[in-house]
């Protein structure tokens, strides 16, 4: 089978609140599928349904061909998950956390010990094997959770906002690990995030979710182009009064002369037309001095689709973490 996760018209209601409102998508084997959406969009709820922790109000979902409602036990065997909120036991050591996890998944003895060492080395925490987790930084805890989710060699890995609240360097480091997992382990990754850059950096395909509904889906490039054309600026050298070439080709949506020696082109997909443009100007004796192009961002796409921005500022994250803490102690 080519799809590891199939969601068909999932709906989840909490009383009056419709958290997930008819979500349908398919995740291909071994790809990284990004679920991008703002606060309260329904990302976590979707992950909880797919990981058998919540029953959908209606709709169906298959993970590795197994129905999440009818055969939860079989689904649980093949998934690994890193929850949005921390879930390691910080009174225990890194080793003890992984050991308990392994035993709960039916591993034991030498095999388990080897897998623990391997996972800790993979995520660069081997030196902290016997340290209590309460001494770990946020990033280290996150990495430990990722290692833990990999111990039982899942076929599908769910990552719910894996870099929420971490500083930029730590986030970049976690991204590297996620790429490494994809390269080295045979696993499909389902990742949720509200960070545009994270989805762009990591995901092969992205579904944008808002108010419990998927409003667009596709590779990052495709989604970006929803927001409009890409723009190419070209500056010619040694123009010396020559006519500036600006004629319409079928792949050029719009062309405009800027000043003495520059033009601006609007195109659908700059990466595809740039070589053609080079060719064309070269063969006609124009020398290109400088070329620049701008692509619409995912943020532009989101703005285009919903009329609002996904907020990304740090302050909001902190505020959000604080609410989580408050909620916990309520």
């Amino acid at each position: 089978m080519n799809y590891t996760v199939i969601a068909d018209n999932l709906v989840k209601k909490f009383g009056d609140i419709v958290a997930v409102n008819g979500v349908t998508f398919k995740v291909k084997r071994s790809e990284i599928f990004g679920f991008l959406g703002p606060n309260g969009a329904g990302k976590t709820t979707t992950i909880h349904i797919l990981s058998t922790l919540l029953k959908p109000t209606s709709g169906e979902a298959l993970v590795d061909g197994k129905n999440v409602v009818k055969e939860p036990a079989n689904v649980r065997k093949v998934i690994g998950i890193v929850f949005q909120d921390p879930s390691v036991d910080d009174q225990l050591t890194a080793y003890e956390n992984l050991y308990i996890h392994g035993r709960i998944y039916g591993l034991k003895g030498k095999e388990l010990e080897e897998r623990i060492d391997e996972a800790l080395k993979f995520i660069d925490l081997y030196g902290f094997k016997n340290k209590q987790v309460r001494t770990f930084s946020g990033g280290m805890r996150r990495r430990l959770e990722i290692a833990r989710a990999l111990i039982h060699e899942p076929k599908v890995l769910f990552l719910d906002e894996p870099t929420l609240g971490l500083d930029p360097q730590t986030r970049a480091k976690i991204w590297d690990y996620i790429r490494m997992i994809r390269r080295e382990k045979n696993v499909t990754i389902f990742l949720t995030t509200h960070y545009m850059d994270e989805a762009e950096e990591l995901a092969d395909r992205i579904a944008i979710i808002d108010h419990g509904k998927i409003i667009a889906e596709g590779p990052p490039d495709e989604l970006r182009s929803l927001a409009g054309n890409e723009v190419i600026y070209i500056k010619f050298e040694n123009i010396n009064g020559k006519n500036i070439p600006c004629e319409d080709d079928n792949f050029i949506e719009e062309c405009k002369v800027l000043g003495q020696d520059s033009i601006m082109l609007k195109v659908r997909k700059a990466s595809e037309v740039l070589p053609i443009i080079f060719e064309k100007f070269n063969s006609r004796g124009y020398k290109i001095g400088k070329i620049e192009y701008k692509r619409p961002t995912l943020n532009d796409a989101f703005l285009y689709l919903t009329g609002k921005e996904i907020r990304e500022e740090e302050g909001n994250d902190l505020e959000r973490l604080r609410t989580i803490v408050r909620r916990r102690w309520r």
Partner: peptide
């Protein structure tokens, strides 16, 4: 429950009674 370890057990394929 507050600190998430419960979810870690609930999402595992293990029978819950012996846990």
């Amino acid at each position: 429950k507050q600190f998430g370890f419960l979810k870690e057990v609930l999402v595992a394929p293990t029978p819950r009674e012996p846990a």
